[in-house]
Amino acid sequence: MSLVLIFFYVFGFLAIASAAFMLATKNVLYAAFGLLVTLLSLAAIFILLFADFVAITQLMVYVGGVLVLILFGVMLSNQVQGRAVQSESVNGISGGLVASAIFGGLAYLILSADYLLPEGITVADAAPANTKSSIIAIGIRLITNFALPFEVASLILLIALMGAAYISTEDKHE
């Protein structure tokens, strides 16, 4: 077992464990921290999968942006002071059944699927030798093959920001 694989299992276990913690805890802030660990573990796994740009983006967007936003949200939406923000659980049985059924289905599909992977695995094996980073390839792709989705995504982002800002504005007339 190679080192890479060991790292993968370690980070994978960490991600699952922290996600389970996020579910298990009633404290919202603890949950946010559980999520933080999960996101970080995933970023590590991305690196292991030779997706360094995605990993960096993961850190910047999720850990640096989304999670901070969530924390702000937790703080802004609480009246209680001096004790932890709580979140009870409901639908435990039905949710557990549905989730486990979906997991069963997914696992079965994943295990029984007949992957028609191209011969590119060998190429992929050689990839680290050629390029240290995937940033150049992604940059080229983004302004050539995926130029239109790229622009549309930027527009979506802009509109979402504007919308979020508008929605959260205090209504003066109320």
Binding site: V90, N91, S94, G95, V98, A101, I102, G105, Y108
Partner: peptide, 17 residues
């Protein structure tokens, strides 16, 4: 809203089946 989600997921399970 969460039970809606459950029902839509039931649809997904049906797809698996």
């Amino acid at each position: 809203v969460q039970s809606y989600y459950i029902f839509s997921l039931l649809g997904l399970i049906l797809l698996f089946l």
